[in-house]
Design a protein around this nucleic acid. Structure first.
Ligand code: ZN
Ligand code: ZN
Ligand code: ZN
Ligand code: ZN
Lengths: 152, 152
DNA sequence: GCGGCTGTCGAGACTGAGTCTCAGTTACCT
DNA sequence: AGGTAACTGAGACTCAGTCTCGACAGCCGC
């Protein structure tokens, strides 16, 4: 099952999640959540800082960093690394372990739930003797929209 | 088929590879290749800079960065991102597309040749309509050695 | 509803990885 | 050997990300 990026990042839910984890729901955090919710695809901290200024949202640079850290910790957002090596974030529209497929042109992202990686990791464990407890998988390509825009 | 990290990073081969790609084989590059060859597991630029100074190898900081960039371009080394978000490098003992399995304790790394990802990407393409042309997959866990050292 | 304890915020200083500049050097081709 | 473009070292520079600290504001208990 896949979810299109663009869904809301529910701030109410989030309040509960943060609370459970011992965080407070403050104006600044609501503001950052709002900025993220109205973003499409991957974004980086500079994007958010710019958005915040443009929309005159009260959220200082340091606060944006701090909030992203928290959101990543509770799984509302994920930090990923673009093919070019840059760090960026994606909103996660899925709970639990999943991966992201990102358009290399427009940055639009799709969440992908588990993909049969357990078979692969089990196989690798057998072959190498390692015990695997974590993996990072990111897929990149062109979204349907960008395929038609760029006949390449 | 897997290759243990620790094999030599052949500087002679490399000379050919670099040449073919229009690069020169210089002392500084040989030096950096040497530093990398004597490394075990993942390392970052700070590690190499420290190694260089310790071993009095003539390789300025900027040169180390530049050389790593080139080595990554020709596939002798790969830039990867640890679970904690830090950038680091691994020597590649395998030619062509492959992935890395890294020990989260001692950083020792194993190259993994293709793992049946084509099945997965084909499936995802069908489900999403994206055209996937690249992916990043990194596996993390404990190597056999560290499993016994840390009964955990 | 009203303190008070604490977590959080903003502003700006600070850090350090990575980049850039530029003058001097060197590999490679002929 | 000579010419030339690629490369190098040293250090300045950038800018993402962190830290500090005094002011502020959630949330809890009364
Ligand atoms: Zn696109
Ligand atoms: Zn997975
Ligand atoms: Zn290990
Ligand atoms: Zn692969």
């Amino acid at each position: 099952m896949t979810t299109q990026a663009g869904d809301q990042l529910a701030p109410d839910d989030l309040a509960g999640t943060l609370d459970a984890a011992g965080y407070r729901m403050t104006d600044a955090r609501r503001a950052v959540v709002g900025l993220i919710a109205s973003r499409d695809g991957t974004f980086d901290t500079a994007d958010l800082v710019a958005d915040a200024r443009r929309r005159r949202v009260p959220a200082a640079r340091a606060t944006i960093f701090r909030t992203l850290e928290i959101l990543a910790a509770v799984g509302a957002v994920e930090r990923l690394d673009l093919p070019n090596g840059e760090h960026s974030y994606v909103r996660c529209d899925t709970r639990g372990h999943h991966h992201h497929l990102v358009c290399t042109d427009c940055q639009r992202s799709v969440d992908l739930e588990e993909l049969g990686m357990t078979t692969i990791t089990a196989d690798v464990e057998l072959r190498t003797g390692y015990v695997i407890d974590r993996h990072r998988l990111e897929l990149f390509g062109l979204c349907p929209n960008c395929q038609t825009r760029l006949p390449s």
